[in-house]
């Protein structure tokens, strides 16, 4: 998982943009994210193709940027998790 950072004003966000939503400049860098803190998680039973039949969707705080992650285990709110990418997307595990 990468977090986008505006080189001009430092604003960070997950979804790529061509223009910074805060300062309007167009110069960004990507910062790798390796860990985050669990804000909330939801167990999803009816899942979209091609994802597994059942997993937890986790809303994370990654250095004050919110991001979504998949987890095969229930993670406690407030706990720290490691983030990595598998073939489908970001997945997190207990730290």
């Amino acid at each position: 998982m990468n977090i986008n950072r505006c080189r001009n004003c430092g604003t960070r966000f997950l979804v790529a943009r061509s223009i910074c939503p805060k300062c309007g400049k167009e110069n960004f860098e990507q910062v790798p994210a390796a860990s985050g803190i669990v804000l909330e998680s939801v167990e999803l039973i009816a899942t979209p193709d091609p994802y597994p039949d059942r997993y937890y969707l986790v809303l994370l705080d990654v250095d004050d940027v919110k991001a979504f992650c998949r987890s095969q285990e229930k993670l406690r709110e407030g706990s720290t998790v490691y983030i990595r990418d598998d073939d489908l997307g970001p997945i997190c595990t207990r730290a």
């Binding site: 997950l14 909330e40 939801v42 999803l44 997993y55 969707l57 809303l59 970001p90």
Partner: peptide, 18 residues
């Protein structure tokens, strides 16, 4: 960037409900 986590629209409703 968000879809790749495996989000469905119903899962967003679950976050909202909680």
């Amino acid at each position: 960037e968000e879809r790749s986590a495996g989000i469905s629209l119903p899962s967003l409703a679950a976050f909202m409900t909680r």
